[in-house]
């Protein structure tokens, strides 16, 4: 596909190509630098960071900051480390992703294969919902959660994340199923398959890629969320991002940079692993979220 740009490139001089490589490598350094800083300094004793050089490798390697970040660091008033919050995040993310993905798939199926009068308006309203600044729903959401007794619970966060993820999951599945041949659905109808049989037997088996894209997108967004987490979580439901921020920005005590870095990597690890394992799908999700239609 880039054969033509290759043709263009071959006419560049050696110097130009060297320059291009230099720029590309320079930017690679820029993107890797913060990660390098975090990793290196999470393996140093605190003194070495204060007196030494942030870019230098540890002189005395230690995993103590990691252990501290995981299980003993002071977060809020409790010296629990990030472990309980990590578990909170897991318990929040898994059902929220499952719920919004399943509903999104069904919505996409209905909106493309069972079209009805006004379906475009329904889809338009769901699509627009992807883009609202969540600040606008914070106050009423807090109130609803309060009224239903879900304030400060993980269930409440699951609900909120699932609902506000619906727009995107519906968008993903709708666009995917739009390209799915409608004749297959018609053939299955003639074969006597019901609404759910058609979905389960005909569409779902071909939905692998879009399910992966959607799950990754939802997982990344919900895992990385801070706004809802900081607004709606209670003592027992604080997600990891909020706990990390509390750890780093607590005004009391000594700033344990090495522990902060270890904690930040812990918080980033799940999404990073997902990215490394299935970057292709991750990028596809980003694109689908950016370039609609």
């Amino acid at each position: 596909m880039s054969a033509a740009s290759q043709d263009v490139a071959t006419r560049n001089g050696i110097f130009a190509r060297a320059l291009i490589y230099a720029v590309l490598i320079l930017f690679a350094v820029y993107y890797l630098l913060p990660l390098y800083v975090m990793v290196v300094n999470s393996l140093k004793p605190l003194d070495e960071i204060r007196q030494g050089n942030m870019l230098a490798l540890p002189q005395q390697w230690t995993i103590a900051p990691w252990l501290s970040a995981w299980s003993t660091a002071q977060i809020g008033v409790q010296p629990t480390g990030l472990k309980p919050y990590f578990l909170n995040s897991v318990m929040m993310v898994v059902p929220a992703v499952a719920l919004s993905t399943i509903l999104g798939a069904l919505n996409g199926y209905v909106l493309t294969k069972w079209r009805f009068k006004g379906d475009n308006i329904v889809f338009g309203l769901m699509l627009l919902a992807c883009f609202i600044p969540f600040q606008i729903v914070l106050i009423p959401s807090a109130r609803i959660l309060g009224m239903t007794g879900l304030a400060g619970t993980i269930t409440g966060l699951v609900l909120i994340h699932a609902i506000y993820g619906l727009g995107f999951t519906t968008l993903f599945f709708r666009n995917y199923y739009e390209a799915f041949p409608t004749e297959l659905v018609r053939a299955a109808q003639i074969d006597g398959a019901s609404f759910f049989q058609i979905f389960r037997r005909i569409l779902l088996p071909s939905s692998g890629p879009i399910i992966v894209v959607t799950v990754i997108w939802q997982f990344t967004n919900i895992w990385n969320d801070f706004l809802f987490g900081s607004s709606f979580s209670g003592f027992n439901s604080i997600p990891l991002t909020v706990a990390l921020n509390n750890l780093v920005n607590s005004s009391t005590g000594v700033k344990e940079y090495n522990v902060h870095f270890a904690g930040a990597i812990l918080a980033a690890l799940p999404t990073l692993i997902v990215y490394i394992v299935s970057g292709r799908y991750f990028v596809r999700g980003l694109m689908a979220g950016a370039v609609k239609g």
Binding site: T241, L244, N245, A264, T271, L272, V283, L286
Partner: peptide
């Protein structure tokens, strides 16, 4: 070039 997009803004902020 792309991996920072997978990180939470909180992690980016800390770094």
């Amino acid at each position: 070039y792309l991996y920072p997009m997978a990180l939470s803004f909180i992690v980016t902020g800390v770094a």
